[in-house]
């Protein structure tokens, strides 16, 4: 009740409505901007996705998403996003736990937090360059592994420009992002819970398996979904790494906009709508899970 004493009463709903009726004009610039540069472009793509090239309403275009090539592209994107999000979530949970609940000194924790803030924003083209210099064919780590440890990773089938190389690169921003996002949940784990479990005779493993992890599960799952969406939309890193030769959905769409590689502009719209659906779904579930997770904190 810090503000708005007038709006508090429910006795005069009609008057309140009338007031709101004029007040929303203050939001007009923002709403107009959002309409022009967020809603309208997306609406245009959605409409196009449900039309044929000659302007007929139809589900044909959307159905083409299930053609073998497009489906393969989506499947590749989904797998890469799942794997990189899974790696990020797991590693982030372990690292976050170690930093916040694991009894490490404060400077270690602060150092990682600062670094995470930077690394989670260090994506795109420079990240690709860093990994090429590290794990590329002539990367420093590649050469050290080969010359010092006798392990030729490229001969062993690894390539930075393949699925696992990309997943490892994505981890560089996924892991810190996970740590940052999970920190509030980890900080919300009250010592009392652990003490209560221990005083009831629970072993550390029982505490972890029956109390801590179930409590953290919604947060972890939610963050996982956000990492998934984060990876799914990633384009610049993969473009710089593979010169657009890795057919994930964003790359296909990028090429489609550059020049009509799909021979059907509406298929591009369908591709875009498919991406929005996947992104929206994972974000919505994340939001629901976060609300659930917040029940334990407050």
């Amino acid at each position: 009740m810090a503000h708005l004493p007038l709006d508090g009463g429910t006795a005069r709903p009609r008057r309140r409505l009338a007031r709101t009726g004029w007040r929303w004009l203050g939001l007009l610039p923002f709403l107009a901007f959002a309409a022009l540069f967020l809603i309208l472009p997306i609406g245009y793509l959605v409409r196009g996705a449900f039309q044929t090239p000659d302007g007929r309403w139809s589900l044909e275009t959307m159905a083409q998403l299930f053609s073998p090539e497009i489906r393969a592209s989506y499947w590749l994107s989904i797998r890469l996003s799942l794997v990189s999000a899974g790696m990020g979530a797991l590693a982030g949970l372990v690292l976050g736990w170690a930093l916040i609940l694991g009894g490490l000194p404060g400077w270690v924790r602060r150092g990682f937090m600062t670094f995470s803030g930077v690394a989670s924003n260090f994506a795109g083209v420079p990240l690709a360059f860093a990994f090429i210099a590290t794990l590329g064919r002539l990367g420093l780590a590649t050469l050290v592994l080969r010359d010092v440890f006798g392990l030729n990773i490229y001969a062993a089938g690894f390539s930075l420009f393949s699925f696992w190389g990309l997943a490892l690169t994505y981890l560089y921003f996924q892991l810190p992002l996970m740590v940052l996002m999970l920190t509030p949940a980890l900080e919300g784990m009250r010592p009392e819970w652990r003490e209560a479990a221990e005083s009831l005779g629970a072993s550390p493993r029982q505490y972890l398996g029956r109390v801590a992890l179930p409590l953290l599960a919604p947060s972890v799952l939610g963050c996982f979904l956000l990492l998934f969406a984060n990876a799914f939309g990633t384009l610049a890193t993969i473009y710089a790494l593979t010169s657009a030769n890795f057919g994930v959905v964003p790359i296909v769409l990028f090429q489609q906009i550059r020049g009509n590689v799909l021979y059907n502009p509406n298929l591009g719209y369908a591709l875009a709508v498919g991406m929005i659906v996947i992104m929206a779904a994972s974000n919505t579930v994340y939001f629901l899970l976060r609300r659930r997770a917040e029940r334990w904190r407050s």
């Binding site: 540069f37 967020l38 309208l40 472009p41 997306i42 245009y44 793509l45 196009g48 969406a229 799914f232 939309g233 384009l235 964003p250 769409l253 990028f254 906009i257 591009g268 875009a272 991406m275 929005i276 992104m279 929206a280 974000n283």
Partner: peptide, 15 residues
């Protein structure tokens, strides 16, 4: 955060 940049700019170049 939900709309990938590539989708957004696709809409822009069309509209």
């Amino acid at each position: 955060l939900i709309i990938p940049p590539v989708v957004l700019v696709f809409g822009y170049v069309r509209i």
